[in-house]
Design a protein around this nucleic acid. Structure first.
Length: 423
DNA sequence: TCTGGGGTCCTAGGACCC
DNA sequence: TCTGGGGTCCTAGGACCC
């Protein structure tokens, strides 16, 4: 049996844990730079607000409706996610952390009443973390996803829905629209509809030969999964990252090259910290800059320039040097840049690197210790970025807007909630 | 004024090799 | 006049996911 545990309106639920008065009230969490709505409570959805709505367009209406608005506090959400996963792990042999708010659970033992067991998991996660989840249980990942949708949609399931017979499977697929299947996106849904396929059951009931004709191997895999044949692999140990990106939109367009250099250096320091945390080194990176794509009246410009590292490295100083070189290639004066970023495009395992014969190993070791010391000091929530390269000057925090940020309730001692006790 | 960020996989086509 | 066949690697773009 495979379970999919999905946190309900996750970012909103995280905020509500520490602001319980917001339960049953409309709440919206915004993306970076307070740009778009990315998480909405059911009450906010009922008012007509949608995921992806630009905040400046809905701001007035949100205020008029008494919607509580938050800037994204991702360090809080990451920590809450860890707590949820820990509880899930205590119920199954293996777990795959699929995203910040979803985990696949793998059970080898059989439990008599799966629905009952599922509800026990849901209740325990709520008790341990304060986060409401929906749990789907079935024989494949794709069917577990379908089940979780039902668990979320219909309160009668009390959080857990099980698809463990062919009858239930067919019924569930009949009620599932093609665009609600995991793996069918906005481009392929219309294609399927043109074939006369509107429900998941119609897709599942196609002849296998017909499926091979119509779709590529992704579609074929999906078809098997819908028919109960599990073929999407479990990823219990997270696979090694292939790319690592840090990019941001800015509050206001940047015209100044020096300002852009600082921002890129800051992004590079972030990917450097992350690459070291995962025991990887970079073989190549890429820097991109872009003007505001919504400003159709002004001149548009986008460019991305790649830069190889002669020696694979995880050293922020080396990475910043390479990024500055790439930026030189990408930058054109005269444009207002709205967005920029850095991607490590080739990550390889640190231990798999063949050392360059001519590298100064003593110097390299000193630098490694310097980076380790810097990471150690910066790791504490209270010291966030206390140490950084002089070229940076923390634009990441300076250049983006976050006017509704909540506190680090779970990781910073000075941010913990206060409770007033009255007689 | 104000429109997110970070990933993966698949496929087609070009470069290159023998 | 006549211009192969087969393979790998890399990259860009598309589609999808959260």
């Amino acid at each position: 049996m495979i379970g999919l545990a999905d946190c309900n309106n996750f970012f909103v639920s995280c905020e509500r844990v520490f602001r319980p008065e917001l339960v049953a009230r409309p709440v919206i969490v915004l993306s970076n730079n307070d740009g778009c709505a990315v998480a909405l409570s059911n009450e906010a959805k009922a008012l007509g607000f949608k995921r992806g709505d630009p905040y400046f367009k809905i701001k007035d209406q949100a205020e008029a409706n008494g919607v509580y608005v938050f800037s994204g506090n991702h360090r809080l959400y990451e920590d809450m996610s860890g707590r949820v996963m820990t509880t899930l792990r205590s119920f199954c042999e293996e777990i795959e952390i699929y995203s910040v708010d979803e985990g696949f659970m793998f059970f080898s033992d059989s439990f008599g009443d799966w629905a009952d067991f599922g509800r026990q998991i849901v209740r325990t996660v709520m008790r341990n973390t304060g986060i409401p989840i929906s749990l789907g249980l079935s024989s494949t990942k794709t069917l577990a996803k379908v089940a979780a949708r039902f668990a979320k949609k219909y309160p009668a399931y009390r959080g857990a829905c099980v698809i463990d017979s062919d009858d239930k499977r067919r019924k569930a697929l009949e009620l599932t629209l093609i665009n609600d299947i995991w793996g069918v996106g906005r481009r392929n849904a219309p294609k399927l509809r043109r074939q006369g396929i509107t429900t998941a059951l119609q897709l599942a009931d196609l002849e296998e030969e017909r499926v091979k004709e119509l779709f590529n191997i992704v579609g074929h895999r999906m078809w098997k999964e819908l028919n109960g044949e599990s073929c999407i692999s479990r990823e219990i140990v997270p696979p090694q990252r292939k790319t690592i990106t840090c990019s941001r939109s800015f509050q206001a367009d940047i015209y100044d090259y020096e300002e852009l250099r600082k921002a890129i250096a800051d992004f590079t320091a972030t990917v450097g910290r992350r690459i070291r945390g995962q025991h990887l080194v970079a073989e190549a990176l890429e820097v991109f800059v872009a003007t505001n794509r919504f400003h159709t009246s002004g001149p548009q410009y986008f460019n991305a320039v790649a830069q190889r590292l002669s020696d694979p490295t995880d050293d922020t100083v080396e990475l910043v040097k390479a990024a500055m070189k790439a930026l030189e290639g990408a930058y054109r004066p005269g444009y207002g840049y709205k967005k920029a970023g850095v991607t490590i495009t080739r990550c390889i395992d640190r231990d798999a690197v063949t050392n360059n014969l001519f590298v100064d190993t003593e110097e390299r070791e000193r630098r490694r210790r310097l980076m380790a010391a810097m990471d150690r000091i910066n790791a504490s929530p209270a010291n966030r970025n206390a140490l950084h390269l002089a070229s940076i000057d923390s634009p990441l925090t300076r250049l983006t807007r976050r006017e509704h940020e909540s506190r680090l309730f779970t990781t910073l001692l000075s941010d913990i909630i206060e409770i007033n006790l009255r007689e």
